[in-house]
């Protein structure tokens, strides 16, 4: 995300430039609100798992440094409250029909329960990882695991296909959905047993974009 928040948080190492921006933020309520709004948007995107890994790390550091990590949990809670609100707006007739099903479907209709947040791991293509050790992905029993597959160059368009394979090329997990902006998120359908895996990111036309190597540990 390229915006004023990023500029102020990270890329503004020029003290004169930072000084000028700080003075404007003290003088201008609208600019201050704009930056605050962008900060909130970053937090919400992080909570939704939509922030690129490097931005997520930057935001996390900012919130940790200022004692505001609790805002992440609030953002997740706010998102689930919004989901509950949308669900409550279903047509009246469907609502009546739901009453008859409620005895059978109580677990499904617990709309106020917070959504499970995936534990996310960022992976870089082999060509970018260099000599760095193979990243480890840990499966959490009660939460889904997601892989953020970062692109080496520009983001592809259309749908992306992800295939998770073991060394003997047996496909363990495959998905197809729209490609992301800075990375593509693949959420595991089921926990993988410990071992070494590759994730192949391809276009729907079959063009292999990147291969990501990772180890799954307990």
């Amino acid at each position: 995300m390229n915006d004023l928040f990023r500029q102020y948080m990270l890329t503004l190492h020029d003290d004169d430039e930072r000084n000028q921006l700080r003075e404007r933020l003290i003088a201008d309520q609208e600019l201050s609100d704009q930056l605050k709004d962008q900060e909130d948007n970053w937090i919400d995107s992080y909570a939704a798992g939509q922030l690129p890994p490097e931005d997520a790390a930057l935001l996390h550091e900012h919130l940790a440094a200022t004692g505001q990590l609790d805002r992440l949990a609030t953002a997740v809670a706010l998102a689930s409250a919004k989901s509950a609100k949308r669900r409550s707006a279903m047509p009246f007739a469907i609502g009546i029909a739901a009453v008859f099903l409620i005895g059978l479907a109580i677990p499904i209709l617990r709309t106020r329960e917070p959504e499970r947040v995936a534990v996310t791991f960022a992976l870089h293509p082999g060509t970018l990882r260099g000599a760095a050790e193979i990243p480890k992905v840990t499966m959490t029993p009660d939460r889904p695991t997601a892989l953020q597959l970062t692109y080496q160059d520009t983001a592809p368009t259309g749908d992306c296909v992800v295939a998770i394979k073991t060394a003997d090329s047996v496909i363990k997990d495959e998905s197809r959905k729209p490609c992301g902006n800075g990375f593509h998120t693949h959420t595991m359908t089921a926990p993988l047993p410990p071992g070494r895996y590759t994730a192949d990111l391809s276009t729907t036309g079959g063009e292999l974009l990147h291969t990501y190597l990772f180890d799954v540990s307990k």
């Binding site: 890994p53 790390a57 997740v76």
Partner: peptide, 10 residues
């Protein structure tokens, strides 16, 4: 701030 090298857990 120095960015982390990997993504922290939610």
């Amino acid at each position: 701030l120095q960015p982390l090298t990997d993504v922290p857990a939610p």
